[in-house]
Nucleic acid binder design. Sequence first.
DNA 1: GCCGAGGTTTACGTTAACGTAAAGTGCTTG
DNA 2: CAAGCACTTTACGTTAACGTAAACCTCGGC
Lengths: 150, 150
Amino acid sequence: MTQPTSPSAPATAQDGPLPRQRRSYSIGELAKMFEVTTRTIRFYEQEGLLAPERRGQTRVYDEKDRVRLKLTLRGKRLGFSLAEIREVVMMYDAMPDGNRRQLRRLLEILADKRANLERQQEDIRLMQLEIDDVERRARDVLASLADQPD
Amino acid sequence: MTQPTSPSAPATAQDGPLPRQRRSYSIGELAKMFEVTTRTIRFYEQEGLLAPERRGQTRVYDEKDRVRLKLTLRGKRLGFSLAEIREVVMMYDAMPDGNRRQLRRLLEILADKRANLERQQEDIRLMQLEIDDVERRARDVLASLADQPD
DNA sequence: GCCGAGGTTTACGTTAACGTAAAGTGCTTG
DNA sequence: CAAGCACTTTACGTTAACGTAAACCTCGGC
């Protein structure tokens, strides 16, 4: 997308050392690959997180779409909403021709996310300590139960 | 909670170096303290995450409740569902008189959570790298825009 | 020619996690 | 004693993120 992506580009043999893995995927392939349903993928498109090409009526996903989906799902695992994820993803794409105001806005958002992530790291550390503690107690109780029934 | 917590303990002056901060909180205090609404706190109770005492009709929260709420909110920030959180919190409380099967189940759950947290750590690292990258590009573009209009 | 596998749109259903509003209770303060 | 404030219950509303179902194309293979 950084290149105009002329759709009529014939992709001759001298396009480069390796034409950037110009593979394409069907919706079903992606679904299996990431263990989500096709409904989910279509939903993400509807929410503006994906924008695959169409061959006729059928969606055709390329490498870039696959990466986007991957990032989206990663964001989800971290508890981000689709809106939050879109915020970054879309701005990232709008970057090359973005004006200064947009770019500054993007930087703000990024700083925000970064702070969020750091907080999550701390939360994870704390929760790990909690879990360690609970586990230790559980093992203690279990050991003291060396012969009770059940 | 590890102690039987005799409710009729008169809390005389010689209860120890500091009687475990036997403070109590109203729902409103907790709400402000954690920046959530009272609705949220009541909802968590309804979902089995909290179980405050009652003075008449009014809820009275103690230190233990406060900690529970804190843990719950921490879990939420990490994207866990209330059901997942309850899973751990409840089993933790059921521990002292739990039988072996329950304890083993708890250990399973804990291992699960732990794996989950580790995955999240990895996700965070990856996303931080992404953000670094996006930010770098954004700054580059911004720099190259040293004089264009808005 | 038909059929099954995979794709499509449209649309209504569902769940979690609260928000919001209404109507009542209890205290303490001017 | 009225007003206000904090608390209570009950109940309906809302949003995000899909699930599920129906009805339709379309294409390669037998």
